[in-house]
């Protein structure tokens, strides 16, 4: 199967999953105790007003009509109105996206940049202090809840030593881009420094679990590859050790690691939600939490749909990348 046919097939599967996601999210409405009108109105409200609001929200329509109303707008970016602010949900969600994406990408970069060299070091210095250090680090790293790590980082580095802010996000990369577009390079550089200073602790918090996980995977994958006959054959033909290790063994190690990183993106986004809560980072996570506390179901539903759809899309991308780097995949 060619790469393009593979992509088409994966996209169709993805569409199906997205439809399923939307349907599940629609169903969330039915498990909530009480109806949305209660959220908007005081309990002792005039029944007539109440009936009017219910009609306005379409809650007395037959189920299939409500489902159709819910699902038909989504392809056009219509995720409904917030119960609380009466503004479009889509706009609120989109406004939060950059913050969450920045955080997720920063954490991934932290993880990859630290974990892969550490895993390789650990595998090539087996049973030496570096290996034991890396092994202990990855064990503790995958066992530490990231919100607690965040609290500890704030405690030590922000409150006690005053090296970093307790975070929040005074400026984002989108804002910096706008400054640059406006020609104000000095302000953009300042903005970037501020951004970096504020994102450091959240990125470490979110990235630690992944760093630990990828270190573990890289180490065991690398050990596995270094034991393969082709590595011995590469040495036998005289290849320098760096080539044997990095061009041959490391690349074959990274191929499965890429898939795992893709699979773990869900955990990454889940982790982002709680990291945002710890650092008052104004992303999708805080939006989700606030919408639950405010019982603003349309905002919660819209955020869930965006998160799940993004996750599905990224997974298709990862699969394509995997197929690209691994010639053995028959795209099946």
């Amino acid at each position: 199967m060619s790469l393009s046919r593979f992509l088409i097939k994966r996209s169709l599967q993805g569409l199906f999953v997205i439809w399923g996601v939307i349907t599940v999210v629609f169903g969330l409405r039915f498990i909530s105790p009480g109806d949305p009108a209660n959220v908007l109105l005081p309990p002792d409200v005039d029944p007539e007003v109440r009936a009017q609001v219910i009609a306005e929200l379409g809650l007395n329509e037959p189920l299939y009509v409500q489902y159709w109303q819910f699902i038909s707008g989504i392809p056009f970016g219509d995720l409904g109105l917030s119960l609380v602010t009466r503004t479009p949900v889509a706009a609120r969600v989109v406004a939060r996206l950059p913050a969450t994406m920045e955080l997720a990408i920063a954490a991934t970069i932290v993880a990859v940049v630290i974990a892969i060299p550490l895993g390789v070091l650990s595998a090539t210095r087996r049973h030496q202090p570096a290996d034991y250090g890396a092994t202990v680090f990855s064990l503790v790293g995958i066992s530490t809840p990231n919100f607690w790590l965040g609290v500890m980082l704030i405690l030590v580095l922000a409150v006690q030593l005053n090296l970093f802010p307790t975070s929040q996000r005074p400026i984002g990369l989108d804002g910096i881009a706008m400054l640059l577009a406006g020609g104000d390079v000095g302000a953009a550089v300042d903005g970037f420094v501020t951004w970096l200073w504020h994102i450091t602790l959240p990125a470490i918090t979110l990235g630690t679990y992944f760093t630990a996980l990828i270190t573990r995977l890289t180490r065991s994958g690398m050990l596995d590859q270094l034991g393969q006959t082709y590595v011995r054959a590469s040495r036998a033909k005289g290849l320098p050790e760096t080539l044997v290790r990095y061009k041959h063994a490391l690349r074959n190690t990274l191929i499965p690691v890429i898939t795992v990183i893709g699979l773990q993106l869900g955990t990454l986004i889940g982790g982002a939600v709680i990291t945002e809560a710890v650092f008052a980072w104004p992303g999708l996570g805080t939006l989700i939490i606030n919408s639950i506390n405010a019982r603003d179901w349309p905002v919660l539903q819209g955020s869930l749909i965006i998160v799940a759809v993004g996750f599905v899309l990224v997974n298709i991308l990862v699969d394509a990348l995997y197929a690209y780097v691994n010639p053995q995949v028959a795209y099946d």
Partner: peptide, 24 residues
């Protein structure tokens, strides 16, 4: 298995928060 795929499309913590949040 397709329904399992749909479940997997939700980050588990996000789904858990939403379910507990909605459910009480």
């Amino acid at each position: 298995m397709r329904s399992a795929d749909i479940m997997l499309a939700f980050p588990s913590l996000v789904l858990a928060i939403a379910l507990v949040g909605v459910w009480g």
